[in-house]
C-alpha cells in the first residue's frame, strides 16, 4: 500500500453499513437519545436565545426579564450598535479576522511541526523539553503580561498585531502541541514505516502521511484557535492601544462602563453579530472533524 492511497479521505456513512435485521430493535434507544439530546440542547440554546432577544429589547427591560418573550420589539440596537463607535463595527470584525487568521495559520504550522517531533522522533532531552513545554502554560498571564509588554515594547511591537500573532507562529500554545502529540501517537507507526520503505524522509512522512491523517486534530486546532483568539480580551487590550486597531472583544467593552451610562442593547446586538463568524467557522470546521483514519478505508 502506498502513501497516496492512505492519504485520500473518503467519507462514508456508517448507518448504511449496518445489517438490516437489527435496525428495528435500535429504534427505541434512538428516540430516547433524541429526546435526551433535545432536552440538553434546549438548556444549551437558552443563553444564546436570551442574548438574541435581549438585543431586541429596550435597554431597561434587559435586566428584568429572564424570559424569551419580547413585549416591545426593538430592532434599533443593531444599526445603532453597528455605527455607535468611532468606526463602523465591521472594521473591528476585520481587525479581529486578521489577528485570528494569523493565529490559526501560526498554530497549525508550528504546533503540528513540534507535535511531530515529540510524537515520532527520538532525540536527547525529549522528556525535559516536553515537560518544559507544559510548564510554560502553567503560569497565569497576569504576572507575565508586564515583562511581555516590556519585551514587545523593546521590539517596537506595541500597537501592532505582532505580539498577538508571532507567539502563535512560534508554537507557544502548548495546548495544541500536546493535543496534536496525542493524535499523532494514535496513528499507527506502520504507516510511517511503509512510507519510509518507499524512501520518504521525515518531511515527506510529516506532510504526506501524518498531516492528512490528523485532519480532525487540525480542525480542532483551527476551531479552538479561532474562537479563543476571537474572544481573548486581555492581551488584545494590553498590546493594542490605537482605537482604530481595536479588535472585537475590546470594541465590545466600549458599550459598557461600570461607572457611567452603558448601552447594553447595543452590546448584545454586536455580541450576536460577532458570534456569527465564530458559529460559521464551527459549522464549517466541524465537517473536518469527521475525516480521520476511521474513514480512510484503513490499511
Amino acid at each position: 500500500m502506498t502513501t497516496e492511497t492512505l492519504a485520500t479521505t473518503e467519507p462514508t456513512t456508517r448507518p448504511g453499513k449496518r445489517p438490516l435485521v437489527i435496525k428495528h430493535r435500535r429504534r427505541r434507544p434512538r428516540v430516547l437519545a433524541h429526546v435526551g439530546l433535545i432536552l440538553v440542547a434546549v438548556v444549551m440554546l437558552y443563553p444564546l436565545l436570551w442574548m438574541v432577544t435581549s438585543s431586541l429589547r429596550p435597554n431597561d427591560e434587559i435586566f428584568t426579564s429572564p424570559g424569551l418573550l419580547i413585549d416591545t420589539f426593538d430592532l434599533s440596537h443593531y444599526p445603532d450598535g453597528w455605527n455607535a463607535l468611532s468606526k463602523p463595527f465591521g472594521s473591528y470584525l476585520l481587525n479581529s479576522a486578521l489577528v485570528v487568521l494569523g493565529s490559526v495559520v501560526g498554530n497549525l504550522v508550528s504546533c503540528s511541526m513540534a507535535a511531530y517531533a515529540f510524537a515520532r522522533l527520538q532525540f536527547r532531552a525529549k522528556t525535559v523539553a516536553f515537560a518544559a513545554m507544559l510548564l510554560t502554560i502553567m503560569l497565569p498571564v497576569h504576572v507575565l503580561i508586564i515583562p511581555q509588554y516590556v519585551m514587545f515594547a523593546q521590539l517596537g511591537w506595541i500597537n501592532t498585531y505582532l505580539p498577538l500573532i508571532v507567539p502563535k507562529l512560534l508554537a507557544t500554545d502548548a495546548f495544541f502541541v500536546f493535543l496534536m502529540v496525542q493524535f499523532v501517537r494514535g496513528i499507527p507507526r506502520e504507516l510511517d514505516e511503509a512510507a519510509r520503505i518507499d524512501g520518504a524522509g521525515h518531511a515527506r512522512i510529516f506532510l504526506q502521511v501524518i498531516l492528512p491523517l490528523m485532519v480532525p486534530a487540525l480542525a480542532t486546532t483551527t476551531i479552538f484557535t479561532f474562537i479563543w483568539t476571537w474572544n481573548d480580551f486581555f492581551s488584545q487590550l494590553i498590546f493594542v492601544t490605537d482605537p482604530d486597531l481595536y479588535t472585537v472583544p475590546v470594541a465590545l467593552r466600549q458599550f459598557i462602563d461600570a461607572q457611567s451610562q452603558s448601552d447594553f442593547g447595543a452590546l448584545f446586538a454586536m455580541s450576536v453579530v460577532s458570534l456569527i463568524p465564530v458559529f460559521l467557522v464551527f459549522l464549517f470546521g466541524q465537517r473536518f472533524l469527521l475525516r480521520g483514519i476511521a474513514t480512510t478505508g484503513g490499511k
Binding site: Y149, I158, I238, T241, D242, V250, A258
Partner: peptide
C-alpha cells in the same frame, strides 16, 4: 487617544506605567 472601560483601563495603565510607557 486610547480608551477602555473602567476595569481594562487600570490594568492597561498599570502595565504601561510599569514599562515606562
Amino acid at each position: 487617544p486610547t480608551y477602555a472601560d473602567w476595569g481594562g483601563y487600570w490594568d492597561r495603565l498599570a502595565t504601561t506605567a510599569a514599562a515606562g510607557d
